[in-house]
Amino acid sequence: MAEIILDETKLKELLKTAIVEVLQEQKELFSDLLAEALKEIALENAIKEGEKTESVSPEVIYNHQQIVITYEGQESLSVIPTAELESLRETVYLFQSHENAKRLLDALERAKARTSQPRTVEDLCQEFGLGEEEEKASA
């Protein structure tokens, strides 16, 4: 049997070349593997961090209280009920238009001052002609 002798430098170069070729030929596979490994590391870190934090009582959840999560050296996070988040997002959306924001604030001032009388939905529909299309379509 023939004996092959490679010096360490040549062996390192061959290994480097082989690894580079595999990485170039299988970029997508290695990218997916790397992404999966990073997710696993993040999950493991989150679990370890969670083990160190106090648990949240059911009362906090049932009463829809805000939960603040702080990690050392990181920005804190807040957990709020989904309905509250959606309400905040809707408010931000409505106030993005200057004209709309002015109308909303004016309406709020009128409501606080109680200068307008309460009205029924039927009265408003009649005033603005809403529902007339349905009546015409059904006739």
Rank of each mutant, 00 (worst) to 15 (best):
I47T: 03
N63A: 11
Q26S: 11
N63L: 10
E72W: 01
R89I: 04
E132D: 11
Q96M: 09
A107K: 08
V20R: 12
K52P: 01
Q65S: 06
S87F: 10
L130W: 15
D106T: 09
T53N: 11
T82P: 00
T120P: 03
Q117H: 06
K27Q: 15
E28K: 12
I67A: 04
E135V: 15
S138I: 08
F30N: 02
F30A: 05
S138H: 08
Y93N: 10
L130G: 03
N100I: 07
A18F: 05
I67F: 02
H64N: 15
F95L: 13
I47W: 05
T17R: 10
I47V: 14
A42S: 12
L88I: 07
K136A: 11
E135H: 05
A113N: 14
V56S: 01
E127R: 14
S31T: 14
E134M: 07
L34K: 12
L29F: 15
L6F: 11
E3D: 11
I67P: 03
V68L: 07
F128V: 03
K102V: 13
E99T: 12
E13G: 00
E133R: 11
P58R: 08
I61Y: 00
E49P: 01
E90C: 02
E75S: 06
N45Y: 03
V22K: 14
L29T: 12
A137K: 14
I4L: 15
K136P: 00
R114N: 12
K39L: 13
L14D: 01
L104M: 14
F128I: 06
E8T: 10
E28D: 13
K112T: 06
K48L: 13
L108R: 11
S138N: 13
E86N: 10
K112M: 09
P58H: 05
L85T: 00
R114M: 07
V20C: 00
Q65M: 04
G73C: 06
K16H: 08
H98C: 00
E36R: 13
L85V: 00
E72C: 03
G50Y: 04
N100E: 10
T17C: 01
E84I: 02
A111L: 08
E122A: 15
C125D: 08
E36I: 04
L77I: 13
E72D: 14
Y93S: 11
E135G: 00
V121E: 12
Q66E: 14
T91N: 07
K39G: 00
E109K: 12
E135R: 15
A35N: 12
I19W: 04
K136Y: 08
E133F: 09
V60E: 04
E72N: 10
V20Q: 15
D32K: 15
